[in-house]
Amino acid sequence: MLTIDAISKTFNPGTVDAKLALDHVSLTVEDGDFITIIGANGAGKSTLFNAICGSFITDTGTIWLNDRNITMMAEHKRARYIGRLYQDPMRGTAPDMSIEDNLALAAGKGGWLSMVSRRDKQAFRDRLALLGMGLEDRLKQPVGLLSGGQRQALTLLMATYNPPQVLLLDEHTAALDPATAEKVLALTERIVTENNLACLMITHNMQSALDLGNRTIMMNAGRIIDDISGKKRRKLKVEDLVERFKEAAGQALDTDRMLLGT
């Protein structure tokens, strides 16, 4: 369970560029929760993820992860419990290294001087076969040769190889073609359900914001302005969502990209 309690972050404080990116945000994510997050550009969605991952230390508030206070924990230490995917498929993998080497790092088994064993290789192959992309036969190839969709699927596999406690998806299908995006999304859903992960997904696609997961939150100007779940959410249509945003934020949502985008 991830509990965020009143976290705030101001960038460039004390200057004319000062920007309140997170304004006392509080949020509780139960295990097995799959929350979709929508909001206009600059609403603070990615900043919220950065705060959870520890890219910066928040100005106020605390972040709890299963009775562990991670507010001040270093980024690479939190990474043990938090998996994250970015919009850019290039960010999650090392392009100069082979698929096998990338997976070996993600698996992170054994001591510093341990090497990939034959058993590890078989485990990698089995996991890769689940992606259905034929990557299991290309273990020795550098990841730089893979397509964006393949890299993103591999990143997803790596981020969940040792199931994290929270999975953060930052528009991770936005840079993929529709068919691949669908495949990666289906894969995401399966991995999240199988491991009963707590999952947060930022999306610009209103339809998938409603289709996926069990809860939807809206962000605007660094605050959570709406939180919909249960029966109410099941009856909701995209138009209703746009309407609710207008009411809550006091401004129209930049809907073109959100309705048409993938």
Binding site: H76, A79, R91, A94, P95, D96, L105, G108, A159
Partner: peptide
């Protein structure tokens, strides 16, 4: 491998819980 990954993509090293 972590050393090689540091030269290739330091973000990825961090997300593998390695400093």
């Amino acid at each position: 491998l972590s050393i090689r990954a540091t030269g290739s993509n330091p973000d990825m090293v961090r997300s593998s819980s390695i400093n």
